[in-house]
Simulated scan of single mutants.
Amino acid sequence: MSKIKAYLQLTRPANIVTAIADIWAGFAVAGGALVIFADQTRLIDSPVFHNLLWLTLSTIGLYGGGVAFNDVFDAELDAKERPERPIPSGRVSKGKAALMAFLLLLIGIIAAWNVSTLSALIALTVAVLAVLYDYWGKHQFIFGPINMGLCRAGNLLLGISAFPVMLQSYWYLGFIPLIFVAAITMISRGEVHGKNRRALKGGFLMYIFIILSIAALSILEGNRFFHVIPFIALFAYMIFPPLIKAMREQIPQLIGKAVKAGVISLIILNASLAAAFSGWQFGIIVLLLLPISIYLAKKFAVT
């Protein structure tokens, strides 16, 4: 059982749930939620629902494999800074962790292929971007946050690709998770040593931009502003208090809490997008992933 838990720790289960929320939000943006709501009696037989399941499996593989490779490439550094992690602690060998990560990425690409060639190409791009970030991107001051944000942007677009034609209309939505995750990545740079006030302020401003963008989209896409208000309020409640505390004291423990809040709040961000495009009902469905992620975050590290 301890071996299984060690392998699960490599995949960051709580974070995988946030990746599933990306897919579900993209699915809602593309109109999939409205299709499902229109004919619930044949849900199990619906090709649209099957696409959602395949893309959900795809993101589990892509995210799990991506973060597992992160620990593979960081094994030597973690031996000094985080010796309790699975690889430096000896609970999982570096070779076996790399093999698991590769297989998970492969599963993610194959699952997306069952939806469309375009979905498979997006999944392949996400996999390449994830490995690039793990190996090189995270060490780059400017490109690192962008690289990580591109992974999330691709994940949202992967959800939209349930209806490939809709990517032509909504490709620009990838900028929302890109900016948000870039902000989280910036903030996380002080998680070990602290003292990163400049990055914390930058993250704060980027968070505000995200909230204003979602509010504007809710008005432009079907006048659903009042559908989105509760989700935006919850989003702000989750991300701002821990970030403000971290800005005041700049100590690793508080910065870590701000990062954790940001990662988990990805689900609320996605619920807000779902509500903006498909109504509060599907926003609630996406939001139901939040307690699952919070529970898993108590059992497994999110960073």
Rank of each mutant, 00 (worst) to 15 (best):
A120G: 13
F225I: 10
F143E: 02
P145Q: 09
L234R: 10
K138N: 11
F240A: 05
F240T: 02
V126C: 12
I146H: 08
H139L: 13
P242K: 14
P164C: 03
F240E: 08
T125F: 14
I219D: 08
N147K: 03
A130E: 12
Y170N: 13
I210V: 15
I214C: 07
A236M: 15
L156W: 06
F226K: 08
M148Q: 10
V192T: 07
L200E: 09
A236Q: 07
S161R: 01
G194R: 03
L150A: 01
A127R: 01
R189D: 06
A111W: 12
A183S: 14
S116Y: 02
F175K: 03
I239N: 04
P145Y: 13
M186E: 08
M148H: 09
L205Q: 03
L132I: 09
A182L: 06
L150P: 00
A112P: 11
L212K: 05
S218P: 00
F209L: 14
I179C: 02
Y207W: 13
F226W: 15
I160Q: 00
L132T: 09
I179L: 14
V126K: 03
G222F: 07
V115M: 04
F175S: 11
F180R: 02
D134G: 08
I110W: 10
I214T: 05
I211C: 05
Y207H: 14
R189V: 05
L212S: 13
A112K: 04
M148N: 09
M206R: 01
W171A: 03
T117M: 08
F240I: 02
I146Q: 12
A123K: 05
I210D: 04
Q168P: 00
A153K: 06
G203H: 02
L132R: 11
L121R: 10
F163Y: 12
F231R: 01
I232Q: 04
F226D: 09
I208L: 14
R197A: 15
R189A: 09
I184A: 04
T125Y: 07
V115D: 01
I244N: 06
R198Y: 14
V228N: 12
I244M: 11
I110V: 15
N155A: 08
T117N: 09
A130D: 12
N196K: 12
I211F: 04
I210W: 03
L234A: 15
V165Q: 13
N114W: 14
E221Q: 09
L212D: 08
G202Y: 07
I110C: 06
I210T: 09
R189F: 07
A215V: 15
Y237G: 09
F225D: 03
L217T: 09
G190V: 07
I239V: 15
L167Y: 08
L118S: 04
F225Q: 03
W136Y: 08
F163A: 05
N223P: 05
A216W: 11
I146Y: 07
K138E: 10
P241S: 10
A112F: 14
E191H: 00
H227R: 00
P177I: 07
R224V: 02
G203F: 03
Q168W: 12
A120H: 13
I146D: 11
H193G: 10
L167I: 06
L178A: 01
F143Q: 02
L212A: 14
I244V: 15
V128K: 07
Y237P: 01
F225N: 06
N114D: 08
C151F: 05
